Amino acid sequence: MNVRTLCLSVLYEGESTGYEIRRQCVEGECSYFIEASFGSIYPALAKLEEDKLVTSRTEQQDGKPAKKIYSITEAGREEFAQQLAQPLGNDMFRSPFLLFARFAHILPRELVEARANEFLQERVDKLKHLEEATAKRSCNAADDWVINYGRAIMALAEQHMRTHMHELITLARAEAAKDAAE
């Protein structure tokens, strides 16, 4: 998957601005698919428009700059379906927390405990967000499947943290031991 395909996926559901597409990629439902920055979204939209896969119109706003609203064309819908039919590649999972956890043994116990609790709370919050997303919008069966997959991943991560967080904290060094060594 690439940013062009991601843009087409958002536009497949309805009109959108580049800003709204970025918001979907950062905090919305597309945030679980691939990363996309403003620096990649706007060039992708320009190329999609050049290729006649999307169209745009400018809408004036009171007291604000005009905004450009994009719509997918029939050719864009066909291209999106063709892109989905291509080999998907490997899922990418990145976690700054797992890098932190990998080196918990060199960090102060209080810091490891604080970060572990933050990570746990983020899982709880993301699970709640998925629950709210389901309640706020009408979902088709495919949406439900994807959301339920996300729920399962977040619930498992939450359960793992609740069950094993103490092990990670135990790996961390105690501050007293550090002071004694000095």
Score class of each variant (00 low, 15 high):
Asn2Trp: 03
Val3His: 02
Cys7Leu: 04
Cys7Met: 02
Leu11Trp: 05
Tyr12Gly: 04
Tyr12Leu: 13
Glu13Ile: 12
Gly14Asn: 04
Ser16His: 08
Thr17Met: 11
Glu20Trp: 07
Glu20Asp: 12
Ile21Leu: 01
Ile21Gly: 00
Arg22Asn: 09
Arg23Tyr: 08
Arg23Gln: 11
Arg23Asp: 09
Arg23Ala: 13
Cys25Ile: 02
Cys25Ala: 14
Val26Ala: 10
Val26Tyr: 08
Gly28Ile: 01
Gly28Val: 03
Glu29Arg: 14
Cys30Glu: 13
Phe33Asp: 11
Glu35Ile: 06
Ala36Thr: 05
Ser37Gly: 04
Pro43Ala: 09
Pro43Gly: 06
Ala44Asp: 03
Leu45Asn: 03
Leu45Ala: 01
Ala46Gly: 04
Ala46His: 05
Lys47Asn: 03
Lys47Phe: 00
Glu50Tyr: 12
Glu50Met: 12
Asp51Leu: 14
Lys52Glu: 15
Lys52Asn: 13
Leu53Val: 00
Val54Trp: 12
Thr55Pro: 12
Thr55Cys: 14
Ser56Cys: 14
Ser56Val: 09
Thr58Glu: 13
Gln60Cys: 11
Gln60Thr: 15
Gln61Asn: 13
Gln61Lys: 15
Asp62Lys: 15
Gly63His: 02
Lys67Ala: 14
Lys67Phe: 12
Lys68Thr: 14
Lys68Trp: 05
Lys68Ala: 04
Tyr70Glu: 03
Ala75Gln: 11
Gly76Tyr: 01
Gly76Met: 01
Glu79Gln: 12
Gln82Gly: 05
Ala85Gly: 04
Gln86Asp: 02
Gln86Phe: 04
Pro87Asn: 04
Gly89Arg: 02
Asn90Ser: 06
Asn90Ile: 05
Asp91Phe: 10
Arg94Pro: 00
Arg94Trp: 04
Ser95Ala: 00
Phe97Trp: 03
Phe97Gly: 02
Leu99Gly: 05
Leu99His: 06
Leu99Met: 07
Ala101Met: 01
Ala104Asn: 02
His105Trp: 13
Leu107Arg: 13
Leu107Val: 07
Pro108Met: 10
Pro108Val: 09
Val112Ser: 04
Glu113Met: 14
Arg115Thr: 08
Asn117Glu: 14
Asn117Ile: 03
Glu118Thr: 07
Leu120Thr: 13
Leu120His: 11
Gln121His: 10
Glu122Tyr: 07
Arg123Glu: 11
Val124Thr: 07
Val124Leu: 08
Lys126Ser: 08
Lys126Trp: 05
Leu127Met: 05
Leu127Ala: 02
Leu127Trp: 05
Leu130Asn: 06
Leu130Lys: 07
Leu130Phe: 08
Ala133Pro: 02
Thr134Ser: 03
Ala135His: 02
Ala135Gly: 00
Arg137Ala: 14
Ser138Ala: 11
Cys139Asn: 08
Cys139Trp: 05
Cys139Ile: 00
Cys139Phe: 06
Asn140Gly: 13
Ala141Ser: 08
Ala141Trp: 04
Ala142Cys: 07
Ala142Ser: 09
Asp143Leu: 01
Trp145Arg: 13
Val146Tyr: 08
Val146Pro: 04
Val146Gln: 09
Val146Phe: 12
Ile147Cys: 05
Ala155Pro: 03
Leu156Thr: 08
Ala157Lys: 12
Ala157Thr: 05
Gln159Gly: 09
Met161Gln: 12
Thr163Tyr: 06
His164Leu: 15
Met165Leu: 14
Met165Val: 00
Met165Glu: 11
His166Pro: 01
His166Phe: 14
Glu167Ala: 15
Leu168Asp: 11
Ile169Gly: 01
Ile169Val: 15
Ala174Cys: 13
Ala176Gly: 09
Lys178Pro: 01
Asp179Tyr: 11
